[in-house]
Simulated scan of single mutants.
Amino acid sequence: MPQPPVPVNGLAIAALVLGVLCFLPGVGLVLGILGLAQIRKKGERGRGMAVAGIVLSAIGALLMALAFSTGGARDVWDGFRDAAGSAGGTFSVDEGECFDTPDGSLEGYAATTGTRRTG
Rank of each mutant, 00 (worst) to 15 (best):
G19Q: 04
G19T: 04
V20M: 15
V20S: 11
V20I: 15
L21W: 12
C22Y: 13
C22T: 13
C22M: 14
F23R: 13
G26P: 10
V27E: 13
G28P: 04
G28D: 10
L29I: 06
L29P: 03
V30L: 14
L31C: 12
G32L: 07
G32V: 08
G32A: 06
I33Y: 09
A37G: 06
Q38D: 15
I39H: 03
R40S: 14
K41D: 02
K42R: 11
K42P: 01
G43Q: 02
G46V: 01
R47W: 05
R47V: 03
G48L: 06
G48R: 06
G48S: 03
G53K: 00
G53E: 04
I54G: 01
I54S: 01
I54E: 01
V55F: 01
L56H: 01
S57L: 01
A58T: 05
A58N: 01
A58R: 00
I59G: 05
I59E: 02
G60Q: 01
G60H: 02
L62T: 14
L62Y: 11
L63V: 07
M64V: 03
M64R: 08
A65R: 12
A67M: 09
A67Q: 10
A67F: 14
A67R: 08
S69V: 08
S69R: 05
G71I: 00
G72E: 02
G72L: 08
R74G: 06
R74Q: 08
R74I: 02
R74A: 10
D75V: 09
V76G: 05
V76T: 03
W77K: 07
D78M: 05
D78F: 04
D78T: 02
G79M: 07
G79K: 04
F80S: 05
A84Y: 09
A84C: 07
A84I: 09
A84Q: 12
A84K: 13
G85Q: 08
G85R: 08
S86T: 14
S86A: 15
A87P: 14
A87Y: 07
A87T: 11
A87H: 11
G88E: 05
T90I: 13
T90F: 14
S92Q: 13
S92W: 14
V93E: 07
V93Y: 11
V93G: 11
D94P: 10
E95L: 10
E95R: 15
E97W: 08
E97I: 10
F99G: 06
F99T: 10
D100T: 13
D100W: 04
T101N: 08
T101I: 07
P102Q: 10
D103E: 12
D103K: 00
D103L: 03
S105N: 10
S105M: 10
E107A: 05
E107R: 08
E107F: 08
Y109I: 01
Y109P: 01
Y109K: 01
Y109H: 06
A110K: 13
A110N: 08
A110F: 15
A110S: 09
A111L: 07
T112M: 13
T112W: 06
T113K: 14
T113R: 14
G114N: 04
G114D: 07
G114A: 03
